[in-house]
């Protein structure tokens, strides 16, 4: 089963997103910030990461950089700050908040179909 990690400091958003993706047949794991996500990364096999940009403890910019050091997992970056705020963050796609959940689901499917550089 495909595992998606959702990283966001807003519980309603990460829980609703998890609910939606689980309904679509994915397994989800949840983290409240970047540091917690890295801890989970060490224990879980993650196929896709959806992360917020602005979070306490460790933000999305640093998380993406550190994940890139660890491999080529597809990353979707979310932010209410607009695409400009996400500039130079090593993510594969950008999702502007607030977003339609259907759009998020479509983007997840599209990202999972993309061949990884290793493949």
């Amino acid at each position: 089963m495909i595992t998606i990690m959702i990283v966001d400091d807003e519980p309603p958003l990460r829980e609703v997103l998890a609910l939606l993706l689980e309904d679509a047949g994915y397994r989800t794991i949840i983290a409240a910030h970047g540091a917690q996500a890295l801890e989970l990364w060490e224990r879980e096999a993650v196929d896709l990461v959806i992360t917020d940009l602005m979070m306490p403890v460790m933000g999305g910019r640093e998380l993406c950089t550190r994940l890139r050091d660890r491999g080529d997992v597809p990353i979707i970056l979310m932010s209410a700050g607009g695409a400009e705020a996400a500039k130079e963050v090593p993510a594969d796609a950008f999702l502007a908040k607030p977003f339609d959940l259907g759009v998020a689901e479509d983007l997840v499917q599209e990202m999972l179909k993309r061949p990884t550089p290793a493949a």
Partner: peptide, 12 residues
């Protein structure tokens, strides 16, 4: 209230 309304808002 925060959690419920936040989740419902995300669901439109």
């Amino acid at each position: 209230i925060y959690s419920l309304t936040g989740k419902l808002a995300l669901l439109g």
